[in-house]
Simulated scan of single mutants.
Amino acid sequence: MEYGKIKSLHAGKPKHEIFSNIDIFSAMDKQAQDNLTVTKAGIIGDGVGNVKFHGGPDRALCFYPFEHYSLWNEKFSKKLDIPAFGENLTIAGMREETTYIGDIYQIGDVIVQINQGRIPCSTISFFNQEPKFLELVLKTSFTGYFARVLQEGTINKQNEIVLIDRLQEKISVHYAAEVILHKRDGLEGAKALLTLESLAEDWKQRILKRVQAAKN
């Protein structure tokens, strides 16, 4: 049985803030929490700044691997404050390369399913005062990932993250992100993602458009 570890939990409502001298309406500046109350719509007391491109049931929880922080700290010669990515769960032992689309985890009495990688926006650059942050994150595909909620409940920061079902072991979150962000393996990569019933609807539509365009 595989386990992940919670390093910290975060939540926060969107608000107007000044990041890098720019006024942005964002929920990036999340606060540490001991517990999260999780519904299928998302976390109670949490939110997003731009509901058109963020949030929703397919993005109810945002995860970011703790292991990547050392890379970014070295890259920018400073220690980034967690959550630098505005993630809800900073986790260890669950990197994108070893976490698969469709994975089902139990955290406390909450059950979630990983359904897509994250496509961050320029807010992460402004928030962390590093102009090249977004560019470098997209280049590596170390973007973190989202989950939908299958069973509502409470997550405690002491809970382990227990893998209870792995539906496939071919398409990791990292591979899926590489296909979406960098067109890895071309049409074959795109078609591979379409075989995943658990893939988030937004990513299905992105890939369908790519496949349809290739036919025309």
Rank of each mutant, 00 (worst) to 15 (best):
Lys183Ala: 12
Leu199Lys: 06
Leu163Tyr: 09
Lys79Tyr: 04
Arg210Ser: 09
Pro65Leu: 10
Lys204Phe: 02
Pro120His: 07
Gln151Tyr: 01
Ala27Ile: 09
Val110Gln: 05
Ser198Ile: 00
Glu97Asp: 15
Glu188Met: 00
Asn128Gly: 08
Lys75Arg: 14
Asn73Glu: 12
Lys204Arg: 13
Lys52Leu: 14
Thr123His: 05
Phe85Gly: 12
Leu193Ile: 03
Gly55Ala: 07
Gly117Pro: 03
Phe85Arg: 03
Lys7Glu: 13
Asn21Lys: 15
Val38Gln: 04
Pro83Lys: 05
Lys30Ile: 06
Ile43Phe: 05
Gly45Ala: 02
Lys52Val: 13
Lys157Val: 08
Asn216Pro: 08
Ala192Cys: 00
Ala27Asp: 09
Leu89Ile: 13
Met28Leu: 14
Ile104Arg: 11
Asn88Gly: 04
Gly55Glu: 02
Ile180Arg: 05
Lys40Val: 05
Ala60Asn: 08
Lys79Asn: 11
Glu178Trp: 00
Asp103Val: 06
Trp203Ser: 09
Ile22Gln: 15
Pro83Ser: 10
Asn216Arg: 13
Gly42His: 03
Trp203Val: 06
His182Phe: 09
Ile207Trp: 08
Thr143Asn: 10
Arg166His: 08
Val149Glu: 01
Ala192Thr: 00
Ala176Trp: 02
Asp103Ile: 07
Leu199Asn: 02
Ile114Ser: 00
Pro120Lys: 08
Thr39Trp: 01
Met28Thr: 06
Asn115Arg: 02
Glu188Phe: 03
Leu193Val: 00
Val48Tyr: 04
Ile161Gln: 06
Arg206Lys: 15
Arg95Gly: 14
Ala41Asn: 12
Gln212Ser: 13
Ile107Asn: 05
Gln116Tyr: 01
Ala200Gln: 02
Glu160Ala: 11
Gln113Lys: 03
Cys62Gln: 07
Pro83Arg: 08
Lys183Gly: 09
Leu167Ser: 12
Arg95Thr: 13
Lys215Asn: 14
Val110Thr: 10
Phe63His: 15
Lys30Tyr: 06
Gln31Leu: 01
Ala200Asp: 06
Glu87Asp: 11
Tyr69Glu: 10
